[in-house]
């Protein structure tokens, strides 16, 4: 992590594409500046010696618990699809893929 921002407009476009996010030209400019500022700020972490420190990825590191795999009454297909913007019977409808 360097204190020099790696963010330019090309990077922003690449990230937006990875995130499946359509941005306007104005948003691209704004996020180029703002992400640069934020990343400059967080680069302070490079000062911290983290050699041999195990990353902490969850707030309480409890053991994974298991439960019986039982069949239970869940939502009906109609309920599951009730918020679909477009559907065809019990299927989600999308634009042509091929």
């Amino acid at each position: 992590m360097s204190s020099q921002s790696q963010i330019d407009k090309k990077t922003i476009q690449k990230i937006a594409s990875l995130a499946q996010l359509a941005l306007t030209a104005k948003e691209e400019d704004l996020y180029t500046t703002q992400l640069g500022q934020i990343l400059n700020y967080v680069s302070q972490l490079s000062e911290v010696n983290t050699e041999n420190i195990e990353p902490m990825v969850t707030a309480t590191e409890m053991l994974v618990t298991f439960r019986e795999d039982e069949v239970k009454k869940m939502l009906t297909p109609d309920e599951v699809l009730s918020n679909a913007p477009e559907r065809s019977g019990h299927l989600f409808k999308v634009p042509p893929v091929l």
């Binding site: 922003i12 990230i15 996020y31 992400l35 972490l45 911290v48 990353p55 902490m56």
Partner: peptide, 26 residues
């Protein structure tokens, strides 16, 4: 989303996400 996608992207994951998780432990 942009910041998170960047910090998790190939080549930056260790420097940002992993580093942050290590300092989180501290």
């Amino acid at each position: 989303i942009m910041l998170g996608t960047f910090a998790l992207s190939s080549g930056y994951y260790d420097a940002y996400y992993k580093k942050a998780c290590q300092v989180r432990r501290l």
